[in-house]
């Protein structure tokens, strides 16, 4: 694993901070230019979470909160690889996920949607990528839900992902969508991403080859984190 600085982030590919179609961004978007900061050790390093961090059911959202039976909903497997921009696997990446239940309801005090809570579904899970960057977890397919933005905005079904790579500069939170959902192209949060190709990269296809017959369908979702330079041609730090 090389330990150099990270490639510059392409900020035209990510959503800009100010996206008035997503109203909450209006007062939460910095207005001054970001200040460029050459990566130092503070950005090139990052926390490491070993497999010891995980409990045995952390990657099984069907079971990790269930008290008296399975949650209601479509059983699915979400799997894929964490790669860097050079296509290299990123092993040891901590992936945390959270989502609504099959009816589109989150288990949260501030959630007001009338769809019911599922007593057997918590909605959080986590896993760590293997040596080849692969990860998988089991869950139920989340439902779409309405949200207060425009008078009638609905979120497409989605799973939130938080990912730690090897450096704090790689820290990323994003969302995974499901192939074929017509709400994707009507969602103001999806539409904060300017490039259609960037949106399509967040849409997981149905993956029949990894489906478990008579049990769960599979969706494949690859995640790409920033790549990093080789340290070979960089200024050596004093003491090295």
């Amino acid at each position: 694993m090389s330990g150099g600085s990270f490639y510059q982030r392409d900020r035209t590919w990510h959503p800009p901070a100010f996206t008035p179609g997503y109203k909450t961004s209006v007062t939460r978007s910095p207005q001054k230019a970001l200040i460029a900061l050459d990566n130092t050790l503070s950005e090139m390093t990052g926390p490491v979470f070993g497999h010891g961090t995980l409990g045995t059911l952390d990657d099984d959202l069907i079971r990790n909160f269930a008290s008296d039976g399975d949650p209601i909903g479509q059983r699915i497997i979400v799997h894929g690889r964490v790669l860097d921009e050079d296509g290299r696997p990123v092993p040891g990446a901590l992936i945390e996920v959270w989502q609504a239940n099959a009816g589109g309801r989150y288990r949260h005090k501030k959630e007001t949607y009338l769809a019911p809570l599922d007593p057997n579904f918590g909605g959080c899970g986590r896993t760590i990528s293997g040596e080849d960057g692969s990860y998988r977890f089991r869950t139920i397919k989340p439902g779409p839900y309405p949200w207060p933005n425009g008078p009638n905005d609905w979120r497409p079904a989605h799973i939130h992902f938080s990912i730690f790579g090897h450096g704090f500069a790689q820290r990323l939170i994003t969302q995974m969508y499901f192939e074929g959902d017509p709400l994707i192209w009507k969602c103001p949060i999806v539409a904060t991403i300017p490039d259609k190709a960037a949106i399509e990269r967040l849409i997981a296809p149905l993956d029949m080859a990894n489906t478990v017959p008579m049990d769960s369908r599979a969706y494949k979702f690859d995640i790409v984190l920033r790549g990093r330079r080789s340290t070979l041609f960089e200024n050596r730090m004093e003491g090295n």
Binding site: R9, S25, R107, K109, I173, L202
Partner: peptide
């Protein structure tokens, strides 16, 4: 042949469910 970084999306209002579940009342998972 370079891949593009996955685009970011907002953490949304319920980031605590995924990142600090005990804090928001989802106990017993972690």
């Amino acid at each position: 042949d370079r891949l593009k970084e996955s685009a970011s999306q907002t953490a949304g209002p319920y980031v605590h469910i995924g990142c600090t579940p005990n804090f928001c009342g989802i106990e017993g998972v972690y």
